Structures are given as structure tokens and as C-alpha cells.
Amino acid sequence: MNIDHTEFIIWMDRIMKRFDILYEKIRDNNNEFMTIDGEQLIDNQDVLQILKISARSLQRYRSTNKLAYYTISGKLYYKLSDVHQLIRNSFNLPRKS
């Protein structure tokens, strides 16, 4: 398949415009994170993926106050910094022999 230089430039321009549109959408989505006190909030699904735990374990962390949470419109959210703190705390726990 042969295309001339002008046609190639037109196609490349179209591709670059689509990349620009995708970039704008990604940037807009990143700005839509829910925040509280200037900190990013994440939902149950995100926490489960970060910690690689079951939903039951996450419920146990909530009920034992190991992980603070917020209820907004009936949905649970967690501060990302609290999740990171939970991870740090789990590394500092003494191991049982």
C-alpha cells in the first residue's frame, strides 16, 4: 500500500488530534477524584485491590477501627493516606512465634 506524503501528514494529524482528546479525558478524570480535607478518597473496590484482601477482611478492619471510613450517599470511602498508614502499621507489628 502506497500513500503519498500529504495523505500521510493528514492521517498523522488525525491521530495526534485523537491523542489530544484522550489526554484531555484522562486529565479530566484525574481531577475528578473525590477529596476530603484535601486528601483523595477511594472506594471499597480500590481498597480491596490495593490491600489484596477480601471484602470480609475489609469489613473487619472497619469494625475493629483499624481503618477509618466515611459514608457519603450510602457509599463507603477511605482516605488514601489512611490505607497507606494501615500498610505501614502492618509492617511494624511484632511477629508471633
Rank of each mutant, 00 (worst) to 15 (best):
S97Y: 11
R14L: 11
D4V: 04
Y70F: 11
I87A: 08
D37E: 13
Y70W: 09
Y78C: 01
S63K: 12
Y23G: 14
I3C: 07
I3P: 07
L58M: 01
Q85V: 11
N2I: 11
I3F: 06
K25V: 04
K25W: 01
I87P: 07
L58K: 00
D28N: 11
K17H: 07
K75A: 00
N30K: 10
H84D: 14
N89P: 11
I21N: 05
Q59C: 09
E32G: 01
D28G: 06
I87T: 07
T6C: 14
F19K: 08
M1K: 12
D43C: 07
Q85W: 10
Q85P: 13
S81I: 07
G74F: 09
M16D: 15
N2L: 13
Q45H: 06
F33I: 08
F19D: 06
L80F: 07
R62C: 12
T6Y: 12
Q59P: 05
D46Q: 04
F19Q: 09
E32A: 04
L41I: 00
A68I: 10
N2S: 12
H5L: 13
S73A: 14
Y69T: 05
N31Y: 00
I21Q: 11
I3R: 08
D46S: 04
K96S: 15
I21A: 10
Y77I: 02
R95M: 15
L51I: 01
I42H: 01
D43M: 01
K66Y: 09
D4Y: 09
K75R: 08
N44K: 02
D43L: 02
W11R: 15
H5R: 14
M34W: 04
